[in-house]
Simulated assay, not measured.
Amino acid sequence: MKNHRLMKKIFAGSLALVSALTIGSSAFASATKIADVSQYQGSINWSKASKVLKLAIIRVKHGNSGDSDYTIDSKRNTNATGAKKYGVPFGQYDYVEFNSTADAVKDARQFYALSSTNAKFYALDNEHRVSSAKGKEQTYVNAWLSTMRSLTNKPVIYYSYQSFVSSHSISTSKFDGTWIANYSAKPNVSTDLWQYTSSGSVSGISGNADLSKVVDSKTVSSWYNYTSKATYMTSIKSGTKVYATRAINRYKTANLTGKVASVKYNTALTAKSIVKSSNGTARILLTNGTYITANKAYVQTR
C-alpha cells in the first residue's frame, strides 16, 4: 500500500514536470515576434513583451553630435536592461546622418561607446542621405563599418529601405547580414531580415511597433546566438597612446581594485607595459602608475 501511494506520487510528480515543461515550451514557442524599439515606444513592460519577442533591436542614438536633430535615445539603457533581465536577445542600432568620412568614423565610435555590452550585434540604420554625401554614401558606409570592425568582433548588420539601397546602389557584402524595410512586399534586394510593417502590435508595448520577419534563419540566428569572446592586448610599447572605446576606470592595482578615476570614451592614455593580474589576466600599466583593462572591447591603439 505504501509502495502504491509512493508510485502514485512519483507518477503525479512526473505529470506535473511534463506539464510545466510543456507550458514552458509553449511560452517559448510563442515568442516569435521581432521588433525594433526606441524611446518612441515609451515605457515597455518587458515582462509581458518577453513572452512574445524572439528578438529586439534597440535604438541607441539618432545622428551625431553637431547635427541639428542629434538625439541620444532616452530609453536605450532601460530597454537594454529590460531585455536582458527577461531573456530577450537584442541587438542595437545607430540611425546615421553622415556628411563626411570623419563624421562616419566619429559616429561609429560614439555609437559603440553608448551601446550596451550585452548587445549581441550592432546595426547601421542608413536611410537618411544628407546633400553633401552625394556620390559618397558608400564611402561613408564603409568608413563606419571599418571603424566598428576595429572596435568589436560582434556581428555588424546593415539596415535601410529597399528604395534607398536601390537608388544609391549600396553594397552590403562586407556586413554580416542585411535588414531591409519594405512595407508593400518582400524586398527585391538581398535581405536576411525583412521589416514588413511600422504598425505592428506587441504585448507590453503601447501603440505601434516596427516588426520584422526572418528571411534567412541561419544568418539571423547567428546574430543573436553569437557569443563574443574577450580578447586582450598581449604587448605594448612604452609611450603608446591607448584610447578608451567605452567609459572605463583607472585603478591602483592590476587586479583593478582601488578605483582612482573614471575615464570617458575616446580619452587618450599613455601606456607603459602589459602586466598580469593575480589570476593572469592582462592589464595595461599606465605611465602614471595606475592600471586599466587590456580588454580590446574597451581600449585600443590607433
Rank of each mutant, 00 (worst) to 15 (best):
K229E: 13
S206R: 13
S30Q: 08
V215L: 02
S26M: 09
A113F: 05
K296P: 09
L53Q: 04
S173L: 08
Y40M: 07
F98C: 03
S160L: 05
R250A: 13
L55E: 01
S30T: 05
T227M: 02
F121P: 04
R5D: 12
L145A: 07
A209G: 08
R302Q: 10
V263M: 14
V105M: 00
S199K: 14
S173K: 13
T227K: 06
V263N: 11
R76H: 15
T293Q: 00
K264A: 14
S212P: 06
K264S: 13
S47H: 06
S198Q: 15
A27P: 12
K229W: 05
S190M: 03
T197G: 15
F28I: 11
S68M: 08
T147P: 05
N288K: 04
E97L: 07
S167Q: 13
R149D: 11
G239P: 11
T270F: 08
N288L: 12
V220K: 00
T152Y: 02
A244F: 06
K237T: 15
V130C: 09
I72V: 15
R246G: 06
K134D: 15
S228E: 04
S184L: 14
S169P: 02
Y93S: 08
S146P: 10
R250I: 07
S203C: 03
R109G: 08
T290D: 11
I205R: 04
Q138E: 09
T290N: 12
I274Y: 06
D176Y: 08
V60A: 02
N188D: 13
M1P: 06
L21H: 08
Y226I: 05
A31M: 10
I157M: 03
G82A: 09
T71S: 14
D216L: 01
L114R: 06
G24D: 04
Y86N: 03
K51S: 09
S273A: 15
L53E: 03
N77M: 01
N45L: 06
S68R: 15
K218G: 02
N266C: 03
R302Y: 10
S19L: 14
E137N: 04
K241I: 07
F98K: 03
K48M: 03
N99P: 02
N255G: 12
V96N: 10
V215A: 06
Y183R: 12
T253W: 06
